Amino acid sequence: MTIKRSKLSVEITKKVEIDYLICLPDGYLEETREWGLIVFLHGMDMRGDNVTQLSNYGLLEAVNEGELSLPFVIAVPQCPFESYWNMERDAVTALIDELSANHNVDRKRIYLIGYSLGGYGVWDLAIHNPEMFAAIVPLSSGGQVSKAEKLKDISIWAFHGAKDDIVPLEQMTEMVSAIEQHQGNVRLTIYPDLGHDIMQETLSNQELYLWLLEQTR
């Protein structure tokens, strides 16, 4: 899989720009089929203006290890300094639209994965664009419980560490319970011995990607 750097600049109601890395799966250039798209949202410490620092972080670190079979187009945008993913919502959705229009992406198989700050971003983006995503995977985060009904038609697999002292486990369990009350398709994995940093444990699990492959709009 080859990782490339790019920048998106578009006019919506205002001009939005976002730097991102894109990783194309093995066989992408040889095969004409459409691929699922995973957008990965990073945590707070990786905000900035040097997107290359994400090339061996999170999902791309898992890719670089070479032990996973990831038949997806993968996009990793960077959130600017002093910003949050809910403030970059238009940029991320514009990025998804651009990738869907210009790459062999199956619009029925668009997925969001996010850790910590990125996990909050995953909840937020899915709540505001529930028709866009087939599945979301929030890690170490919580969402807007009052808007949980908007997520009832999206497949969700959430992850959290029981010993998380940065984002209390209750934030995740309350969100999951709220979705369950609306008969949503949600599952939660709790690591009993882990704290906030659960990225490697979660993203190196091939079962997660096999599950994603089963999810479609």
Rank of each mutant, 00 (worst) to 15 (best):
I3D: 03
E11C: 12
T13D: 14
K14A: 13
L21H: 04
C23L: 11
L24V: 12
G27I: 10
E31S: 15
R33E: 14
R33K: 15
M44G: 12
G58Q: 02
A62E: 00
N64I: 01
G66M: 06
E67H: 11
A75L: 07
Q78I: 05
P80K: 11
P80I: 10
F81S: 14
Y84I: 12
N86R: 15
R89V: 11
L95V: 05
L95Q: 05
E98V: 09
S100E: 02
N102D: 09
V105K: 02
Y111F: 11
G114D: 00
G114N: 02
Y115N: 05
G118D: 02
V122G: 02
A126H: 03
H128Q: 11
A134L: 04
V137E: 00
L139H: 05
G142Y: 01
Q144F: 11
S146N: 14
L151K: 00
K152R: 15
S155D: 02
D165N: 12
P168A: 08
P168S: 08
L169Q: 04
M172I: 07
T173D: 07
E180P: 03
E180H: 09
Q181M: 15
Q181V: 13
N185V: 10
R187L: 12
L188A: 10
I190P: 01
D193F: 08
G195C: 09
G195E: 02
D197W: 03
Q200A: 14
E201T: 15
E201G: 08
E201R: 13
S204Y: 09
E207K: 14
L208F: 08
L210D: 15
W211C: 07
L213N: 13
E214F: 10
Q215C: 13
